[in-house]
Design a protein around this nucleic acid. Structure first.
Length: 938
RNA sequence: GGCCAAGUGGCGGAAUGGCAGACGCACUCGACUCAAAAUCGAGCACCUAACAGUGUGUGGGUUCGAGUCCCACCUUGGCCA
């Protein structure tokens, strides 16, 4: 048999699996327990697969294959999240329809994914841009549109069940419709949005990073626009509480909790004082939200956001000009710029005053852009003594400050403050002071008392607030799902009947943004206007965001071809929830939150039968480039001469993040080869946990960086497959370290696992011959006791490790097995066969080929997973460490079944132990077979 | 600044509170070869000639026994501000 040649083996088995539909999931479970194992489906970008993709895909594939062999009815699908900006930008540049580019990219992704031998059921492939798919995305949108949230029942209900006041009913169907609009879970609203002129679209808050677009880094400005929103805030509490029982990592749950940002506090009403000259009629008030109502006595001024609707009403004539120019300036800033802590605070006095409701003090009202319209009520009471931003603002504008929570002594000492003269805001809890009836109460008690007081006097109410905002659902783009609605002349919204779905995109020749917040669809004049029963309607020119298609794709996989429903109810009942969902941590918040939200709406409306879609979630860690040694710029410049003398060069590396300092990457010039290589071992030493270059002594950090084109450290999976084969790529990606850890790539490491597969190959075959021939050591004989022990321990360890996704240690165990048997002249078939089954989920092509070489004629994909016998995993004699006062002094070899007394006797009798005890009194003996013995002497 | 992870050989990493460094990479030596590659064998934390001793970011603590548990600090990464 020839030597191990993945280029020959792998395409053959991929063809075999495809032809025989080996991994098709039949609808009939045949009584097997179900297991739905899902990858986060990729956006098929033009640059193709990244080595990060196969990491998650290999993990799920190993588990899918493992579960099949363990008798599960496995669902393991793959598809494409194919709407999105890059394809559209390509279309803008080339005039080519985005679907063409998308289709090419999908074909390339599919080819790459298939070349890795994953056991997907390709008959279930879905594509979010396929009208047969987005028909149901539109259908779900309409379902959400036709739902309102009942706060009493705490669930989404059909809009037809919304109670309509009688006087509205009397005014007829149009009035009812108007009444319903603001209750719908999908609704339209005018609000300031992040308009990105460069991309020609508005962006969701979460797509804006540091005041720039997440994609492309273009500037973003604020502009009011009428937009579709999804009322995800109605579900905030359920999205929060339903996290608890899920089998997700605590850190991801915490990120979701932070994003939802539940806080408990109070809304407080401040009356606005009449002005002289009067600018407003009396009776005006402003409501603020605060999480610290206990500090109300310390509120010495108020701040409204520049966009607050009362600003224009209360501003006095002499302040009008200053206020107006401030409003204009802040409109140009992003939320991030406005809330940045480090920055100097800005603001303008409105000339108006309010009354502090608890002590009747007259306090000035300012506007400042550190207060956002989108959080709370868009206005705050400022308590400069106990809030950092208020403190800075008060210092800036010389506003008064009253301490109402007594700081603890340590804090006063650390900050150099006195109770009456704070040098910083004291934000911790403490005992109330200067606060009337609250004095002497701790923060929790003070909160309770003041809220009771406010409610009793109708000055305020207890209020739970969420940081989570409603989800901006419109995009001014072409390449997304069209909204299945019509707009009437008086701006009424008419949903399309379900029979009209899918509403497809019009053919266009020009995909450029219009330059106004109208999307490119505004140019599709034929498509845009629709006449029904003699009335002319206009279609929506916005499209849905990319998140829409990915919110529910896991449901479509369950019944991907169904023309009558998004999926058959019985099938949904069988497969949901997803048992294991693996993907990148970059989707830890948004995709999962949006997806959970849609799922809950569908659950409330009776279309799915479990409240949460993803039972277990694992985030694979990012794969970085190969590691390199870095040193600081100062050290490099200082030692440049000496470095040149020892043939070391440095390259300046500027990090992408602006706040990170640049470093030099050091390389050693290999005299013989004339190339620059990583610093060799002998030039490096460690001291006190730090790494140094030996001469000249410079502190080094070994670090790996994100793969990026600009650094030139991107690994293309195609190249790895070509060089070492898919099985080696799969094995290496799993062998690198724990699935969830961030870890650097190493091409040498791929060679390592490639050599392992070569050893497995030679363990079983005779590679000196040209034709298929088993290695003469592989014999049909009874395995001896030790061979059985190695096998059964391997079965146990590989099975247990695979089950808990500890793939790296499972692979190490298979390597140990191979290291043992390649040294043996007798390799019993009865041991080799189960081993191949253990290897199969990890390196399926090689395992299938060798399985066939052992004489099998069918795939091993459904062979039962080998069972281990606990009795056979144990050796006759075991080694036990003996400690004296906790320090290892000897190792005893004793029979496996030894008891504590026997072990103690053996330890006391051992010569080395006697020497270590040195005649001292043995005060205590801890003997724990089969672990250790410890003699306490003194 | 807050919250959450994580710091173990030259590198990736392993280790239910019980022999630290499994497995792999790199490196060194040897076998095979005219030679190289591949392969096979041996070695490989530090200190030491050896015995011994020291070692899991730093400093304390709990325990018969700590990489593992607790406290403080330092560093790195992630998320939030």
């Amino acid at each position: 048999m020839p030597s191990y040649n993945p280029a020959d083996i792998e395409p053959r088995w991929q063809q075999f699996w495809e032809t025989n539909k080996t991994f098709r999931t039949e609808d009939d479970s045949e009584g097997k327990p179900k297991y739905y194992i899902l990858d986060m489906f990729p956006y098929p970008s033009g640059s193709g697969l990244h080595v990060g993709h196969p990491e998650g895909y290999t993990a799920t594939d190993i588990l899918a294959r493992f579960k099949r062999m363990n008798g599960f009815h496995v669902l393991h699908p793959m598809g494409w999240d194919a709407f999105g900006l890059p394809a559209e930008q390509h279309a803008v540049q080339t005039g080519e329809h985005p679907s063409t580019n998308t289709k090419n990219n999908i074909d390339n992704f599919r080819r790459q994914i298939k070349s890795l031998g994953f056991s997907y059921d390709w008959d279930r492939e879905v594509d979010t841009t396929d009208p047969a798919y987005f028909r149901w995305t539109q259908w779900i949108f309409l379902t959400i549109y036709e739902t309102w949230y009942d706060p009493i029942q705490k669930k989404g209900r059909p809009i037809s069940e919304l109670p309509i006041p009688e006087e509205v009913q009397l005014r007829g169907p149009d009035a009812v419709r108007k009444y319903q609009e603001p209750y719908r879970l999908a609704y339209r609203n005018e609000q300031p949005v992040n308009w990105c002129p460069e991309l020609g679209t508005v962006l969701a808050n979460e797509e804006v990073i540091d005041g720039k677009s997440e994609r492309g880094g273009y500037p973003v400005v604020r502009q009011p626009l009428t937009q579709w929103l999804m009322r995800i805030t109605a579900y905030a509490d359920r999205l929060l509480s339903d996290l608890d029982p899920l089998d997700w990592s605590e850190s991801i749950k915490q990120m979701q909790r932070n994003w939802i940002g539940k806080s408990e506090g109070a809304e407080v009403v401040f009356d606005i004082l009449g002005q002289s000259p009067p600018v407003a009629s009396g009776g005006l008030s402003v409501t603020v939200y605060t999480t610290r109502p206990d500090t109300l006595y310390g509120a010495t001024y108020m701040v409204l956001s520049p966009e607050h609707r009362l600003v224009d009403v209360i501003t006095t004539p002499d302040q009008r000009e200053a206020v107006r120019s401030y409003q204009e300036a802040s409109a140009r800033k992003s939320d991030f710029d406005r809330t940045e802590l480090a920055k100097k605070k800005t603001g303008v006095f409105t000339g108006a005053y309010a009354v502090n409701p608890v002590n009747c003090e007259r306090i000035p009202i300012w506007i400042a852009d550190y207060v956002l319209t989108s959080y709370g009520t868009g206005a705050i009471m400022a308590v400069p003594a106990h809030d950092e931003r208020d403190f800075e603002f008060a210092k800036q504008f010389a506003l008064p400050l009253v301490t109402v929570v007594t700081p603890n002594a340590k804090w006063l000492k650390d900050t150099g403050s006195t109770v009456d003269n704070l040098t910083a805001a004291y934000t911790d809890d403490g005992v109330a002071m200067n606060s009337g009836d609250l004095n002497g109460l701790d923060t929790t008690a003070a909160k309770e008392k003041i809220i009771a007081h406010l409610e009793a006097n109708q000055l305020g109410t207890r209020k739970i607030n969420y940081k989570l905002r409603d989800w901006l659902f419109s995009r001014q783009r072409y390449w997304g799902e069209p909204f299945p609605v019509l707009h009437g002349a008086d701006d009424t919204v008419i949903p399309l009947p379900v029979s009209d779905l899918p509403l497809t995109l019009p053919e266009m020749t020009d995909y450029k943004p219009t330059g106004s917040p109208d999307g490119p669809l505004a140019k599709a004049t034929d498509w845009l206007t629709v006449t029904r029963d003699g009335v002319t309607y206009r279609r929506e020119t916005n499209t849905m965001p990319q998140w829409a298609g990915s919110c529910w794709y896991f449901l479509r996989f369950i019944d991907p071809k169904n023309p009558h429903a998004f999926a058959d109810p019985a099938k949904l009942k069988h497969w949901l929830p997803v048992d294991l969902y693996i993907g990148g941590a970059e989707h830890a918040v948004l995709h999962l939150l949006y997806s959970r939200f849609w799922h809950k709406v569908l659950f409330d409306r009776g279309y799915v039968y479990c409240p949460e879609p993803f039972q277990k979630l694992v985030n694979q860690g990012m794969i970085l480039g190969e590691y390199e040694y870095h040193c600081s710029v100062a050290d490099f410049e200082k030692h440049q001469q000496s470095l040149v003398a020892v043939e070391i060069t440095g390259t300046l590396r500027k990090p992408e993040e602006e706040d990170k300092v640049p470093t030099y990457v050091l390389k050693f010039r290999d005299e013989a080869a004339g190339v620059f290589v990583d610093l060799p071992d002998e030039k490096i030493f460690k001291e006190k946990g730090k790494t140094y270059l030996a001469s000249p002594k410079i502190e080094l950090t070994a670090k790996a960086e994100k793969m990026s084109k600009s650094r030139g450290n991107v690994i293309n999976p195609d190249d790895v497959v070509k060089e070492y084969g898919a099985d080696s790529l799969r094995l290496f990606e799993m062998f690198m370290g724990p699935l969830e850890a961030v870890k650097p790539w190493s091409t040498k490491g791929v060679e390592g696992v490639y050599r392992f597969l070569g050893r497995v190959w030679r363990m079983l075959t005779d590679d000196a011959t040209d034709t298929l021939k088993l290695n003469p050591s592989v014999k049909d004989v009874e395995p001896d006791k030790e061979a059985l022990r190695v096998l059964h321990r391997t079965i146990q360890k590989v099975g247990e490790d695979t089950e808990r996704l500890s793939f790296n240690t499972a692979i190490a165990t298979m390597m140990e097995f191979t290291n043992y048997f390649t040294k043996q002249d007798v390799r019993p078939k009865a041991v080799m066969e189960p081993f191949l089954l253990l290897l199969a989920p990890y390196a399926p092509h090689a395992a299938e080929e060798l399985w066939a070489a052992l004489g099998h004629t069918t795939t091993l994909a459904y062979e039962p997973w080998p069972k281990f016998d606990p009795a056979l995993t144990k050796a006759d004699s075991i080694e036990i460490p003996v400690q004296v006062n906790g320090k290892l002094k000897a190792v005893l070899t004793v029979p496996a079944g030894i008891d504590a007394a026997g072990l103690e006797a053996a330890a006391r009798a051992d010569a080395k132990v006697i020497e270590a005890v040195g005649g001292k009194t043995i005060k205590k003996v801890i003997a724990k077979p089969p672990q250790m013995v410890n003699l306490v002497v003194g």
